[in-house]
Write a protein that binds this DNA or RNA. Structure first.
Lengths: 151, 151
DNA sequence: CGGCAAACTTAGAGTCGGCTAACTCAGGGG
DNA sequence: CCCCTGAGTTAGCCGACTCTAAGTTTGCCG
């Protein structure tokens, strides 16, 4: 046996860590957006139907269906044919966490002086990449900004 | 002809716009990361070889090849078999824009009091979703924060 | 009740971003 | 000069996410 081929390739150090994280984040972004939207719809109208998500995300019904199947497989939603979409306990937890992050980021952007429109758009994209630590820093900045007034 | 079915479905209003943007952003995120990394490698070592990207992104050689083919198809890089990877003019432009955004976001996070490590990771994910307007707001905040000192 | 429209599902396809496995190419040593 | 190694390429696969097209189901209205 050729024991010589030991293989290193483990200590790819920093850069890789960053990008591995970037990739794994990607995996759950859509899921977070969906459970957030589902929770919204339920809060606003009592139930969430596929067509609500079709409008929300501007994709076809077929796509919504696929995605919901994946979410169901992953234990985030529960749904039966032709019935409204419901969140599991885990789905609700994820939705509420996402919503909190989203709100913090969005209000932080507005706090920075960004327009409503831009804050809405940018926070949508940013929320998935903001760590707990950064979130805390944003909250701290808003507290200090409020208490000390401008300049 | 049934002219009655006029169909609206065009003015899906705000939510859809936000998410359409989210999706199209995704398409170019990897491209931006790649051209940035390629520009870095060229700056640091004179040339960029596939293996540099293999390390940077912690993916296989095959994946790097695929991606580079796509970038070449999209006019961002130029490469011949077994030769180093070069950026086109457009690739260089994109790289420099990305790098600037990246630097602003990262230094802003540090300005907020986030740790080096977290700033590096979060900025990597966030940079692709930060609009010009938000970028300006970050720069403004840093200017004001610097000039007025803490509290 | 019959039928239609809207909501939903299914089938089939495509792109992107990843992988493994197996091959080719380029450049030193022995 | 031959061969080995490391870099690069190719082929084939998979899963996520999207679409179009075609079929089902539901619910309402006449």
């Amino acid at each position: 046996m050729p024991t010589a081929t030991v293989k290193i390739a483990e200590d790819i150090s920093l850069p890789s860590k960053v990008h591995q994280r970037t990739r794994s984040d990607h995996a759950s972004e859509l899921a977070e957006d969906y459970v957030e939207a589902i929770a919204d719809a339920i809060a606003k109208k009592g139930v969430c139907r596929g067509v609500d998500l079709v409008h929300q995300f501007a994709v076809t019904h077929a796509t919504v269906n696929n995605t919901i199947q994946r979410l169901q497989r992953d234990g985030l939603v529960r749904t039966e044919p032709y019935q409204p979409i419901e969140l599991t306990a885990e789905g609700r937890r994820l939705a509420s966490r996402s919503r909190q992050r989203h709100e913090i980021v969005e209000s932080f952007l507005k706090f920075l002086g960004v327009s409503e429109q831009t804050a809405a758009i940018d926070s949508e994209g940013m929320e998935h990449h903001v760590s707990k630590e950064t979130l805390q820093a944003m909250k701290r900045a808003m507290r200090q900004g409020r208490s000390s007034g401008s300049r």
